[in-house]
């Protein structure tokens, strides 16, 4: 017996296996970053004074990073559409854009970290910076994980396109759901909470 519902949906649950799996995974990610956010609230509420993000962090660079991630999510959608429509070159092109955006985000992030270190701002300097480095660092690890998966799909993994286009498209979709989540994490959580609040 083979494992069923790898690509097609199970009628009574309305899911296939990996779609359900990735949403469960994301729910646990929500708990992970939710715990960090709760810690942020608790530590901030208990602090005698709390710096505004703008006075320490570089908002223009972070805004640029936000737009890069928004664009990478759009690129991911076009790449996925390419696999759906049987257009491998379109997939390859947009996935490359998506990968470059992810890399660009990390380069800018590294640059931001370096500027902080140059000004003698370390995680140990203050609780705000500790939270900043921990949260953005953990997010950067998630970006790196997404880049590894996406570059596999762009490179060796794309051989599957010829053998089983539907299955491949499904894989890109799953990777896309994760990628959008990681982008959203930055756009609606880390960027506003750390830089703007």
């Amino acid at each position: 017996m083979e494992i069923p519902y790898i690509v097609e949906e199970r009628p009574d649950t309305g899911f296939n296996n990996a779609t359900l799996g990735i949403w469960l995974f994301l729910s646990s990610e929500v708990m992970l970053f939710g715990a960090l956010f709760s810690s942020y609230i608790l530590l901030r509420a208990g602090a005698a004074h709390w710096p505004s993000g703008a006075s320490i962090l570089n908002i223009p660079l972070a805004t640029l990073n936000t737009f890069i991630l928004v664009f990478s999510s759009i690129a991911m959608v076009f790449a996925w559409a390419g696999t759906k429509q049987g257009n491998l070159p379109q997939f390859k092109k947009w996935m490359a854009v998506c990968l470059l955006c992810g890399l660009g985000f990390l380069v800018i992030k590294t640059f931001e970290y370096k500027m902080k270190f140059a000004h003698h701002m370390f995680p140990s300097t203050s609780t705000f910076l500790a939270l900043y480095f921990t949260m953005t660092g953990l997010h950067a690890l998630h970006i790196i994980g997404g880049l590894i998966v996406n570059s596999y799909l762009w490179g060796p993994g794309s051989k599957m396109f010829q053998e089983d286009q539907r299955h491949f498209s499904h894989r890109v979709e799953i990777a896309g759901i994760y990628w959008h989540f990681v982008d959203l994490l930055w756009i609606i959580f880390l960027f506003p909470v750390l830089y703007l609040l």
């Binding site: 708990m31 992970l32 709760s38 810690s39 370390f122 995680p123 140990s124 921990t134």
Partner: peptide
Amino acid sequence: LLLAFPPLEAGAVMQLMDRVAHTSF
């Protein structure tokens, strides 16, 4: 397991930071 373990993972990361990077979570 799925929903309760991640907060400990967050805690573990913060304790690691406290130990290694001398933060004060």
